[in-house]
Design a protein around this nucleic acid. Sequence first.
RNA 1: GGCCCCAUCGUCUAGUCUGGCCUAGGACGCCAGGUUUUCAUCCUGGUAACACGGGUUCAAAUCCCGUUGGGGUCACCA
Length: 511
Amino acid sequence: MKNKELLSKNETIRVRMAPSPTGSLHVGTARAALFNYLFAKHYDGTFILRIEDTDTERSDEKWEKDIIEGLSWLQIEWDEGPGKKGTYGPYRQSERIKEGIYTKYIEKMLEEGSAFYCWHTKEELQKERENQQEKKEAPRHLCGYRDLHTTDEEKIKQSIIRFKNETTGPVEFYDFVRGEVSFDGENLGDFSIAKSINEPLYNFAVVVDDYEMKVSHVIRGEDHISNTPRQIVLQKALKFDIPKFIHLPLILGTDKSKLSKRHGATSVGEYKDMGYLSEALFNFLSLLGWRPSEDEKELMPKDEIIKEFTVERIQQAGAVFDVEKLSWMNGQYIRNLSTEELATKCMPYFIDKNLIEIKNPKENISDAKFKIPGLGTERDFEWFKGVVAMEQERIKKLDEITGVTEFLLKDIDYEKSLLVWKDMSVEELKKILSDLNVILEEIPKENWNKENLREIIMPKAELTGSRGKMLWPLRVALSGKKASPGPFEIMEVIGKEESLNRVTQAHKKLV
RNA sequence: GGCCCCAUCGUCUAGUCUGGCCUAGGACGCCAGGUUUUCAUCCUGGUAACACGGGUUCAAAUCCCGUUGGGGUCACCA
């Protein structure tokens, strides 16, 4: 009897994410991990991370490392798994193989006759499938060796182990986002479960591990839905409890197909490098295929998402990964950061671009001194905070910070026509710039901050009749750009000497 | 092709289970206006959707059937 209760009485909630380390952490994988995590945290359950590296050819430790780092960065924390104490043996399938966990069950099935050796060649299998395609039948292997149970060592060596599928009629299960799902059991064929007695394959390893680890709910991407009947049939053969299933809608690219490389960045690491904040990605991913009860609420911290999370509000249709919206959300998170945090997070981008050099790297970041290669000056972290604060409202990704502040740290160049505000004459412009030179010169260094500068310059600007007449050329002289932060902020950051220098340069351009 | 899943603005979605409050709401994007020396932020307004066809009903985005469309999956990968 299928159980339609999401939570049975006294049930211990145990969920798991089981990535295979064959590539960097995909956002789809991260989203599945996230939903498992949210489910576990919401119901006070246990979230397990299990590494499915049975495919030794394709698995690599570096990918496992990438996956673990990515999940940690996103603050999706597991309770059991790599780096944590486990109560049910190791959490890496390669290690579980060594412990003979799967072998035990494979032998049992072989003995009972629910599994058998099949030595059909790949060519033979291929041919069988082609024939079935032609006859418009379900492609599957119906093995003629299923009752032979050979003991011939030579044959066994060339064989794989298959499940002897004797299911007739439908295999049904209740999916908590899709409802009743039914597959024709006969169409499953005699599917493979292990390459040899010590080499389990995916569907079999999953079933054994989920059982041994007492997994209560299987939450995974919809692309696994067709594996579900195979796993159920195995669970029945092994007399295991059948977990509850929750299949998540897929994350799609802009063309509505499963998100993949050709759509652009797909790995968590790439988004991290581009300067997306983990909190923003976490928030964004949670909203891909899920919604809180108050639809209006989109910007939500982790705790609130956990509190709000319920599986009945998971979508059924796939969700397009909209980078535009992620960027907007990231901008919101950037604006909520303290300048100190933002500056710290931005630092690596400046160093990568050689815009700053830390002179005393061993010191705490807030005590650090920087050298600015472009200007040859030395500054400290307080000053760096000023640089970053200036652009905090303007950037959506951390990596934009370097491009947008480069003019502060390097010599600038621009067309002199840019200095002209509306239809003012060159003579007027020259006058204003030399006036500015005098005004700035008179401001003592110790009073050189944006508040004071504003207080002194604004009244003078008003006197020109239209303050843009003074403020625009000043700003262009300082930034060399038609769009930039305001002149007072810029002057504070680059200092009196450089400010005067830039105003003088502007004046020279006009002669 | 077999099997399975899905279907509200360009995108994420609310509303669907428990038909009427929906002349379909919000957010991103886009457009316009305001604020500002510029850009950004911010504020205001606008743009835009129930795939189609049949039923059922006094009443359907909501229930039923069909069609179309999209997607996933069919390994000695996971």
